[in-house]
Write a protein that binds this DNA or RNA. Structure first.
Length: 650
RNA sequence: GCUGUUGUAGCUCAGCGGUAGAGCACUUCCUUGGUAAGGAAGAGGUCGGCAGUUCAAUCCUGCUCAACAGCUCCA
């Protein structure tokens, strides 16, 4: 007999070789029908796999993350079975579960798939799922496994087998399909009731662009049609929050083929939003000791040779521009750091001058690969909320923490509560691509880890993600469709001060090298606004929104009163407009709601007589009648509250 | 950059080998109204661009530009 410990602490006795499914059955039949997999001593297993010694056991049903992942992994196998039935001879790469759903990379030879094919595969999957095939696990000797896939002619599986040790190899079979797989899987295919193949795309074998491109089919499955429907609705909702769509609807920005791809054009409302955001950060920065500077949009190529960027990124940049006669070369500024280094170097610095914090909303140009461009999140011309802090080595830690405070203040004010902080360190093995001494790297890496811990950030450490000149702390958020984007960044740099031979005179009258910290709380104005739009679904906070109040006169007769209200509000820095079109009030309300304007003031005979306004709030409806002064006070207070923040660093 | 899909009016889209259509938006007129679309008339497109096939191309073919999805990349 063995002892099974359940999550509630209860210990039960079962015969050796009992399975999670058996345990479930002993508790209740209903539970047994829902169990998809099990966690045995913390490891996810097939529910049918025999347990041969004492163990802790958690039965996994659909609500569990690991169960979903198992379910989707099995669905990938089901899709593979369908593919093999429809396209005999198809070769398979890998087919894992992902955050939502699964994919399988396949090699179809010369055949290409279209939308109609996806439907066909879906139907076949549903048919095969109904066949109720069991997922059977089998230990296989390496030689036998290689022989199996050699006969099948699947070179990808053979390549995968090369990386595996004999004795650890397992096959899973359902119906007529057998795959090399570590498992685990759900008990049988009949659990899969709803199937949707969402997407078809190319993907390089093993993620290497030198390898063959395989066809990747993405899909998602559910144990009930209702859940699939809900998921599809959710996807639609997410699309409505897409910043590219909101940017168009709210008239914030646009692109022009003539101007060029990846070069956003800010429309008046977008520019207003962006400038307001910039002023907000500028103010916080000045309060916390930053000094604004301004540098040109181009710089001599020599500047980037000195910085090392030419060598590293020159070939991937916009080509240098040349002067008419001399043949001098200039580059469109791809980053502000070298310019700021030269500002530092423009006069002798004492330890008393440090830290020197130079800030600039600097527009830079980078030649991003064509396929990388994406709305405002990945563009070729963008403005960084950049600053470079030059400090003594012993000041790094304190400066770093101050920057974290500033970033958190920005996030809090703009309502970002969900983000991850990623500590990007060097690749553990390959250190050839990094500039700078081992010792400096270690100090910097430790300083970042300590500062993040000190501030209580939830961090993920990523090896190999550091910049070539130093480690960094990046703040990441997700967009409406689940894609991850980096927002704020803080980076320690021991390299540029070296290359630009920056110095300060220390207390003991010796010359020393300062340390540089690059930082951008927004990351870039473009990307930040993109993510902000998606975050708030286009309902921008009152203090930031281009138009705060729209005054809607009920008829032309009250137009004058409406305009007088706007003039009054303007005195209190409230951004308001009148909709004086000859439309019915219902129509004006609808149009204003669609533009997501926070407040509507409806004014007619009554309001004009009493010097009041009927307030309607976006998304909430009629709020009743207020005196003009009360309304103005309300707006002013709300705005004040929004930008104050509890964690204001100044 | 790679693979695939798409490109028709300002926007969302329909259509088709015989020189274009809807709704919304826009303009004008009527309507002067009370919390999410009042009515009528009008204007607007060399069907992304360049070639080719054809008696004839928005439609077929090639190239090119752009957008979208994913992969690779991201100072």
């Amino acid at each position: 007999m063995i002892h099974i410990t359940l999550p509630d602490g209860a210990v039960r006795e079962y015969p050796e070789g009992t399975s999670a499914a058996d345990v479930a059955k002993s508790i209740s039949e209903g539970l047994a029908r829902k169990v998809l997999a099990a966690e045995v001593n913390g490891e996810v297993w097939d529910s049918s796999r025999p347990i041969n010694s004492d163990a802790s056991l958690k039965l996994l049903t659909w609500d569990d993350k690991n169960a979903k992942s198992t379910f989707w992994h099995s669905s990938a196998h089901l899709m593979a079975e369908a593919l093999e039935t429809i396209y005999p001879g198809v070769k398979f790469g890998i087919g894992p579960a992902i955050e939502t759903g699964f994919y399988y990379d396949i090699d179809l030879g010369d055949r290409t798939l279209g939308e109609d094919d996806l439907k066909k595969i879906e139907d076949k999957m549903k048919e095969l799922a109904k066949a109720n095939s069991t997922f059977k696990r089998e230990d296989v000797a390496k030689a036998k496994a290689v022989a199996y896939f050699t006969e099948k002619g699947d070179q990808y599986k053979i390549e995968l087998l090369e990386g595996l040790d004999d004795g650890t190899i397992t096959f899973y079979t359902q119906g007529n399909f057998t795959d090399l797989c570590r498992g685990p899987h759900i008990p049988n295919t009949s659990f899969i009731k709803a199937v949707k193949l969402t997407n078809i795309a190319g993907a390089y074998w093993r993620g290497n662009e030198k390898n063959k491109m395989l066809t990747r089919i993405y899909g998602v499955t559910y144990p009930a049609q209702k859940e699939l429907d809900e998921y599809l609705v959710l996807l639609e909702e997410a699309k409505k929050r897409d910043h590219r769509r909101l940017g168009k609807e709210l008239e914030l920005f646009t692109f022009s083929e003539k101007v060029g791809s990846g070069l956003p054009l800010w429309l008046p409302k977008g520019a207003m939003l962006r400038e307001r955001l910039q002023q907000f950060l500028q103010k916080a920065q000045i309060e916390t000791g930053y000094l604004p500077v301004i540098t040109p949009h181009i710089g001599s190529k020599q500047l980037y040779v000195t910085s090392g960027h030419w060598e590293k990124y020159g070939k991937d940049s916009f080509r240098p521009i040349t002067t008419p006669q001399e043949g001098e070369e200039f580059m469109l500024k791809p980053m502000n750091c070298p310019h700021h280094c030269e500002i530092y170097a423009s006069s002798p610095r004492s330890y008393k001058d440090l830290p020197l914090r130079l800030a600039e909303f600097g527009t830079v140009y980078r030649y991003e690969q064509r396929g990388e461009l994406h709305g405002l999140t990945r563009v070729r011309g963008f403005t960084q909320d950049d600053a470079h802090l030059f400090c003594m080595p012993q000041q790094v830690s304190a400066e770093f923490k101050k920057v974290i405070d500033l970033v958190l203040y920005v996030f809090e004010t703009l309502g970002f509560t969900e983000y991850t902080a990623q500590v990007s360190l060097r690749d553990k093995d390959d250190r050839s691509k990094y500039i700078g001494s081992e010792e400096n790297w270690q100090i910097a890496e430790q300083a970042i880890i300590d500062a993040a811990n000190d501030k209580g950030l939830k961090t993920v450490i990523e090896y190999g993600e550091a910049a070539f000149y130093g480690p960094k702390l990046d703040f990441m958020v997700r967009d409406a469709l689940g894609r991850k984007w980096q927002l704020g960044t803080i980076q320690v740099d021991y390299n540029l001060p070296e290359r630009f031979e920056l110095e300060y005179v220390d207390v003991d009258n010796t010359r020393k090298r300062p340390v540089m910290i690059h930082r951008a709380p927004f990351g870039s104005m473009e990307r930040f606004i993109a993510v902000l739009l998606e975050h708030c679904g286009g309902n921008l906070p009152l203090w930031l929104t281009p138009l705060q109040v729209k005054v809607l006169p009920i008829s032309d007769k009250y137009s004058e009163y409406a305009h007088s209200l706007v003039a009054t509000m303007k005195e209190d820095d409230i951004r308001a407009e009148v909709d004086d079109r000859s439309e019915k009030i219902g129509r004006k309300i609808r149009d204003t709601e669609l533009m997501k304007t926070p407040y509507m003031l409806i004014v007619g005979e009554k309001e004009m007589a009493d010097n009041t306004v009927a307030v309607r709030k976006h998304g909430e409806g009629d709020k009743g009648t207020f005196s003009v002064n009360d309304f103005i006070t309300e707006i002013r207070n709300t705005v004040k509250e929004q930008i104050k923040g509890k964690n204001r660093p100044y």
